[in-house]
Amino acid sequence: MDLATILQILDSTVRLGTPLLLACLAGLFSERAGIFDIGLEGKMLMAAFFSGAVAAITGSVLLGLTAGVLSSLLLSAIHGAASITFRGNQLISGVAINFLASGLTVLIGQKWFQLGGRTPPLSGDGRFAPITLPFAETLREVPVIGPIYYELISGHSILVYVAFAAVPLSWWLLYRTRFGLRLRAVGENPAAVDTAGISVVRMRYAAVMICGLLTGLAGAYLATALSAGFVKEMTAGRGYIALAALIFAKWRPVPALGATMLFGLLEAIANRYQNIDLGGVVLPVQFMQALPYILTVVILAGFIGKATPPRAGGEAYVKER
């Protein structure tokens, strides 16, 4: 395997890992505040649809992105209302959001475009174009560093850089600000936060909204950067893989980057090689595709460290009993 091949695989890893990373960070904010969210998949799907649809109608990818994020925020608000204000079951609300998104996207898509839920293909300004970073062309000839810079780091869409920037930003927000401390506390011991005179409800809504923003970006990335338009069910389980990555990363931002990129790498390798021959033992491609889930189960079973979810996760906060 030469450098060019490795770079191509890593390049593919970045593209495939980015939606997972955004969704994983989204889940992180929500779950750290004590709101389980298995509706990541549905929110991504909804955002993918509206970004694709609005970009197709207006021809502007930025309007598409805005619409995608707004639709995702709306679903987040529904999830918030159901699980924070009305103290419903968070898992059921999440499942409902997944079903809602799966049905609504196709229904609205059919109504608007008569293409069976697909949106018209995007071109030109309707898509996020790859960005060539400064000096990428000139540095290209420099051995080793040149190709790495040109192939791997340069040439992605803006949302990829946003996603990577979101990792340190999330870390700083969660661990170095008053807001972050309160957010984490709400997920561990909401009664204590309430005693300190801070609104649990407001903190949780804020977390859920951040979650909506990030899933919105993830969905828009799928429909307007990676592909050119929306196809029904195009998230294809990425929301669930992101949840697996969240557990794998033990609800921490920097390991989330590692976990999502690892899962992206596994998918990239599976795309490149159908069967991997390890000197006599052949690894079928299905094994590679199942590996993210296997790894998550291994982590959950406690073989590699201990994954402890936020203590108040999944429970609605009741002020007085």
């Binding site: 060019a4 091949t5 191509q8 593919s12 593209r15 495939l16 939606p19 799928l222 990676l226 592909s227 338009g229 196809v231 029904k232 069910e233 195009m234 294809a236 389980g237 998918e267 990239a268 795309n271 490149r272 159908q274 491609v285 299905q286 595709q289």
Partner: peptide
Amino acid sequence: IQNMTGTTPAAWNDPVKGSELAISQKSQ
């Protein structure tokens, strides 16, 4: 170069993966 998208019906509706597979084949 032959690739299959997946082993579940989701493999019929995953343009993102289709495009990754195409890019991977092109690079080969």
